[in-house]
Design a protein around this nucleic acid. Sequence first.
DNA 1: CTTGACCCCGGAGCGGCTCCAGGGTTTCCA
DNA 2: TGGAAACCCTGGAGCCGCTCCGGGGTCAAG
Lengths: 158, 158
Amino acid sequence: MRIGDLAKATGVDIETIRYYEKAGLLPEPGREANGYRAYQQAHLERLAFIRHCRALDMPLESIRRLLDFVAHPEAECGDINRLIDEQLARVQARLNSLRALESQLAALRAQCGENHSARECGILHELVAAAHGEACACHFDAKSGSHYLLMGKQKNRP
Amino acid sequence: MRIGDLAKATGVDIETIRYYEKAGLLPEPGREANGYRAYQQAHLERLAFIRHCRALDMPLESIRRLLDFVAHPEAECGDINRLIDEQLARVQARLNSLRALESQLAALRAQCGENHSARECGILHELVAAAHGEACACHFDAKSGSHYLLMGKQKNRP
DNA sequence: CTTGACCCCGGAGCGGCTCCAGGGTTTCCA
DNA sequence: TGGAAACCCTGGAGCCGCTCCGGGGTCAAG
């Protein structure tokens, strides 16, 4: 099986496959006489395993650790549990912050109904005011009331 | 106000402030005689605005666009709405996939209660089986039944 | 006169890819 | 038989949003 076949079979980009090899997740396959990579069934399974874990949003390092367990089945599996727990904790933390984000954005979006000029756009006002509030809170001796957000032209745009 | 003061006032790392300048989000401030950056109130407000938007997980490019609206308040604000809508859509998509992830991980975690050898760890079995299933589904002419995931030692570990 | 706190700059590194240039090989069709 | 298209190789750069590093300058206190 050549790299293109493996890519088609798993739906993984060719470059990504080579990247996993470089990263030490997928073992170097044999080569055909012309230097092309020659994969076997085991590579397909292994790649599918990696992608399944990635779909669970695990970092490559965790996957590496899991693959170590596959290679050493006599080891204790406590670390596997811990690994999954960590991953679960990461996901839940991200979920919480995204939920908060969603409601903030939804509230923001509700500030502006139809098209009008940016000057009177509720969203923009809200953002500027919120930022202003935070700047005062965090704190600095702001002259009260006025907003200083507007500055000269940006010259250093890339 | 020197960069350290601005950092303290906003809670933003010094390096990040310089990064925003390079990225064209924060205008280049004046300099003291010794070359130190000299910030004003406007910079503080602007930095707070940027951080507020970042807290809403907006990419820097979107923030740049928002700042353009602040600078050109006569423009139509339709694009602002679109920008927020896009951001909201991104967040919601991510929320959905994270919710799915969470239940998968929780189910996975339930496969393995106490410590035993990795060989009989339900989590590992589940992962291997799932990956195997996907490899067959997506599809390739797998010899049925056996798992080929286990391979020779990895040599190319970094 | 040294110590320490602050500041400057340019460049590298992170993760997880993705893309590119510049080359070689194979396969198909006229 | 020739040439185009499709595949493969390598090494290196680019993406985002920082973060860290080395090697230096500046300035006030003890």
